[in-house]
Nucleic acid binder design. Sequence first.
DNA 1: GTCCATTTCTAACGTTGTTAGATTTTCTAA
DNA 2: TTAGAAAATCTAACAACGTTAGAAATGGAC
Lengths: 198, 198
Amino acid sequence: MPSSTRRARERAGIRDRIIEAALHVLESEGAGALTVRRIATDVEYTAPVVYQHFAGKDALVAELVVHGYALLMADAARIAAGEPDVDRRLLRVAAGYVRFASEHPHLYEVMNGTTIAASNRRDAAQPTIDLLTELLAAWSAEHGVTPPGDNEACEIIWGVLHGLASLGYHDTVGNERAQRLAEQALATILRGWQATAR
Amino acid sequence: MPSSTRRARERAGIRDRIIEAALHVLESEGAGALTVRRIATDVEYTAPVVYQHFAGKDALVAELVVHGYALLMADAARIAAGEPDVDRRLLRVAAGYVRFASEHPHLYEVMNGTTIAASNRRDAAQPTIDLLTELLAAWSAEHGVTPPGDNEACEIIWGVLHGLASLGYHDTVGNERAQRLAEQALATILRGWQATAR
DNA sequence: GTCCATTTCTAACGTTGTTAGATTTTCTAA
DNA sequence: TTAGAAAATCTAACAACGTTAGAAATGGAC
C-alpha cells in the first residue's frame, strides 16, 4: 500500500512547514507574536492541527531551539573553515557567535530561555561545543600551551561568548562593539593562558 | 488636613506590599506563577487594585528588576568591603555575582529578560557597573597596568560574569563550578592584561 | 457504492492581562 | 450628625492565549 507512505510524507511535510512558519514568525516578529493560532493560520490550517504534530507549544519551541543551534553551528563551522590561522580562527568564530546573536535576537533568546530544559539545550549545543573544543585543542597544540582541562577552558570561552552576545543582542552595548569586546576578551584570555604557562 | 498624607502613606504601603508579594512569588515559584491575580490575592485584594499602583504588569516587573539590581549591588558591595586585597576582592566579587544568580535564579532571569527595556536595565545596573569600575581602577593602580579604556574593560568583565552566571543559574554547569570558572576567567583576563603591558 | 480510517474543523474550557462601571467605604462640611 | 463628594474597591466582562473533545468532512479499500 504505497498510499500510506505518501500519507506519511505529507504528514512530515506539514510538520516541516509548521516549523518553518514558526521560525519565520519568531525571527521577524519576536516571541510575543509566536502563538499557536498564528502559526496555524500561516500554514493555512486551524490551531488543533499543530497538536497532531507536536505535543504542545513547548515541544515546537524546543525544535526551533535545535534548529537555532544547527544554524549557529553551521555559521561557526563556515567561519572556522575560512581562516587558516589558528589564533585568528578563534577570534573570528568568537565575533561570529556574537554576530549570530544580534542577527537572530529572538531566536537566540529562546535558545537560552527557560522554556527549554537544560539537558535539551546541552544536547542541541553539543556540536558547537565540540567545535570549540577542537579549535581550542588546535590553538593549544600550536602554542605548546595547555589551558585548564576537564572542559573548563571550553566552558569559560562558551560563557564569555554567551555573556558578550547577551550584552550585544539586547542593545546593552551595540552590535559591532560587542563583537570587538568578544574578540578582545578571548584574545586576552588566550594571552593569559600563555602567561600562566611561562 | 492630615488625613490626606495618611492616605498617601497607606497607598504607598499597599504599593510596597504588592512589590513584596510579587518578589516572593517570583523567587519561590518562578515567573510562571507571577500573575496579577495571584499577587492581588496574596495582598488580600482583587486584581484591579494592582493597576491603581502600576501601569501594568510590565511596570511592576520593572520594579522587581530594580529591586533585584539593588540586592545584587548590596551583595557585591558587602563582599568588596570584606576583602582588603585588591586581586582577591575582584575574584570574590566575581564568584559572588555568579552565586547571586544561582541563589535567585528566577529573579536573575527577569533581570536579564526582554520584558524590561535595555535602557531601564542599564539604569538599574549602573551602580553595580560603577562598583566594578572602581574595583578595576584600584586593581589597575595597584599593578601599574592600564586595561582597555572607554569602559571596554568593565564591559568585558560584566559580560564574562553574566555569561558564566547564565551557565550556572540554569544548571548548564553546576553552581560551584560556575563560580570557580568565573574566578578562573577573571584571573586569566587580569593576567592577560598584565602580559600585554609588559 | 459503501464503509472505515484519517484528517480537519468547530466549539468550548480555563487562564491570562486589562478595563468599565457599579458599589462600597471614607472623608469633608454644613 | 448627617448629606454629599471623593476615593477605594469589587464585580463582571473583554480579547487572546494554550489546549482538548467531539462533530464534520475527506479519501482510500473492498
